[in-house]
Structures are given as C-alpha cells and as structure tokens.
Simulated assay, not measured.
Amino acid sequence: MIPLFDYQRQWRERQSEIMDTIQRVLNSGQLILGAEGRAFEGAMANLIGMDHAVGVNSGTDALVLALRVLGVKPGDGVITVPNTAVPTAAAIRLCGARPVFVDVEPDTLLMDVEQLKKLNTQGCKAIIPVHLHGLMVDMDPLLAFARARGLAVIEDCAQALGSFYKGRPAGSFGAISCFSFYPTKNLGAYGDGGLCTTRDAGLAKALRQQRMYGFDETPIAQVDGLNSRLDELQAGILNLKLKYFDADMQKRQSLAQRYLEKLDGRRLQLPTRPAGRTHSWHIFAVRSPFRQELKEKLAARDIITGVHYATPLHRMPAYQDLGYEAGDLPVAEKAAAELLSLPLFPEFTHEEQDKVIDTLHEALPR
C-alpha cells in the first residue's frame, strides 16, 4: 500500500531522538509553558523573520486568537475563500463574526484580488488569505486592497511553512499570521499544535494573554480569554523536527519536480508556480474532470490519494445561512470537483512515486 501520508516512517527513522526528547520533557517537571515552548517560539520567530511567535493549541485556535486580538466582534465580516479547510471559517464563526467568501484565481486557486474589488466590504473588519497547498497568495495587491479599506490581514499559513513570496516567507506579511502543526503538515507534531507570528509587541502580549484565560502577570483575568497553549511535549518534538526541516523541504521539492517532469504532457492539469513564488508542496494536487476514475484506478494499484476539498465551504450545511447558492463562486466550485491529491511526503520513495506515475500514464495516454 502506498499511503497519501505516513508519519510512522519518520517516527521509525527518528524514534531514538524523539523518545529522548519526550523523556527530557517529562523529567523537567514542566509540561505547560516551559523552556521547550519558549525555545520553539524563538526558533519559529527566527525562521519566519518576525519579532514574536506565540505557541497555541492548534491552527484553529491560532486563527481564533488572531481575530480576537485584532478586534473582530460579533457581526463583523471577515473575508476569506471557500476552498479551504473548515477551520478557516469555523474560527470566524467562533468569534461571532460572519465569513464573507470571495472566489479564487483559475490557475492558482488562490484568493482573486480582482474578485475582491467587486465585494461590498462595508462591515468587514479583516481578511484571511489562505496559502493553499504550499503556494502563497499574490500578497502585494492583496495588502494594497486591505490597506485601502482598513482591513486587518491575517495570513492562514497552515499549509505554507517553507513557502516564499518575492523572497519573503509565509507568515511575514500579516498583522498576525497563523500556523498549524497538525501531523500531516510540513512541520508536524504528534498531535495538535499551532502558532501565531507578529511584529507587534502589543499584539504578541495580547495573544499570550488570550491563550491563558486572559491573565496578566498574575492569575487574574483582565479580558475574556481561552485555554489554548502549545504543550511542552509537542513543542519539544517540534524543536527536534526543526533541525530536519530544510532537508525535508528539499525532499519535497525534489519529489514535486519529478511529478512535474514525468506527468507533463498528460491530460492532467498540474500545479502552477507563478514567478516570484516558492512552492513548499504541502500537497501535490492535480486537476482532472475524470477525478473519480483516476482515483479508482490508483486505488486498484494500492495507491491512496486524497481530495482537498471536495465541498466548498459555502455549499456546506453549516454555512447555508450565509445565503450563497450553487454557482456563486464558480471557480472554486469547479476546482472542488476536479482536484486530486497525490502522495508526497519526505519519506516517499522514488520507486513508490514511479508506480504512481506509471499508473497515471496508463490511465491518461498522451
């Protein structure tokens, strides 16, 4: 069986180091908000080139806390895209705010600034560009749009650690940027984990206050807060994995390049890579109107594939009250019916990849 993702391969390779890390954390006597978390926050701030990083419980909570400290209130509109994971919209709802969806570009499937210009942004407080699959949104025009309308920018970088736009890393553009360390991510924990980055010391302080019940330096709640802390075990594991991050990214780049070269010319729409952007290949998603047929042929050869995301958010029952209809966001809707995610992770072998490629060649002659 060729999996879409397999954390156990990495676990077997690094088991001794990981167990040493777990033992060190357990022997420290500090399981929450200790030295491991502080070290990881510092390392992530350096990696992204930001002044502050704040570890939290999950990528979802990172978005919730970012929205809260940026002043998003019940009834406010928050602009985002429909072709993203549910947590992007769920975080908006958890703040009592209203998701406002905008369609995406036909080639990149990222937030379309030209479509943004057609939106009525009255009542909107923030905008969440989602860097999809490892490719960053065209940030210069998006930031100009946001500045002109007084919108706070929150980068959703859950799929984009290791991505770059004009030489700057994902997470270095937003007032606050949000990361997930769900196990499948480019830097994955062995459970949930998240992080916010910012240049603003005041926002960083507010984020730390929010993640700890609204406490200040004393255990007295100054504001309504949450319990959302990155625990020391996950922080320790992530610290360990950071030393392998560059090598793992090189493997992703190499595997993606093999797909691009060996699948070129087939009746398959391959991922695009606009000039000035470095793809981090969290997901290698191809497009075909014959997705289900391809998925079944690959499955018959014991190759597991995925679909990210089969139903756009505006077509899900939870968001029907927003009033969107089928056809309102046609680019995202069409892509949702065609995208197929192929196996790609650092431990994926060339032999396995060749089996995937050969199966697609058989299914898709020139």
Rank of each mutant, 00 (worst) to 15 (best):
F348H: 14
Y244E: 15
G265V: 06
T80L: 11
L342R: 00
G202R: 14
I2N: 03
Q210P: 01
Q115A: 15
K334W: 06
L238V: 04
G202T: 07
L263K: 02
G214E: 08
Y165I: 01
D76W: 02
A206G: 05
D107G: 10
R267S: 14
F345V: 03
L238Q: 04
D138K: 10
V56K: 01
Q353F: 05
T88S: 13
I154G: 01
G96V: 10
E41W: 00
L294S: 07
A170S: 15
L313I: 02
I220D: 07
I32R: 08
L238W: 05
K185N: 14
G327F: 03
L135Y: 05
A363W: 05
E351S: 11
D107N: 14
A144V: 07
L298I: 09
G71K: 02
E232G: 06
I2S: 02
A335I: 04
R14D: 14
G96H: 05
A256C: 09
M212Q: 13
Q222D: 09
D156A: 14
M44P: 00
M1V: 10
Y7A: 13
L143S: 07
G162N: 05
G75I: 03
F164A: 09
D231M: 12
G150P: 12
G134T: 12
A91T: 08
L255Y: 06
A363N: 04
A299H: 07
V153Y: 09
F348N: 08
A336G: 13
I22E: 11
L360H: 05
A97V: 05
R9Y: 06
L260H: 04
Q15I: 10
E351C: 05
G202W: 09
D107F: 14
F145R: 00
E351D: 12
P129N: 07
V130C: 12
L119Q: 15
A285I: 01
F40E: 07
Q222R: 13
R273W: 04
N120D: 15
S28R: 02
D192A: 12
G75K: 01
H131V: 04
K355P: 03
G75M: 03
G29Q: 08
A275W: 04
L263M: 09
A158V: 09
Q253H: 14
E36F: 07
Q253M: 06
A275R: 11
H361W: 13
T218F: 10
E351T: 11
D358R: 12
H314E: 05
K118H: 11
L364H: 10
G236W: 02
H282P: 01
A62G: 13
N27W: 06
T278E: 13
G327L: 06
L142E: 03
H282C: 15
R208E: 15
P183M: 02
W281A: 13
G323D: 08
S180E: 03
V56R: 00
S254I: 02
R252S: 00
S180G: 02
M1Y: 04
L207R: 11
W281R: 14
M111C: 08
L187R: 04
K262V: 00
E362H: 13
D76S: 11
A35N: 08
V331L: 00
K166H: 12
I18Q: 06
I237S: 09
L142Y: 05
V223E: 13
M316P: 00
A336L: 05
P346Q: 04
A152Q: 08
K243N: 14
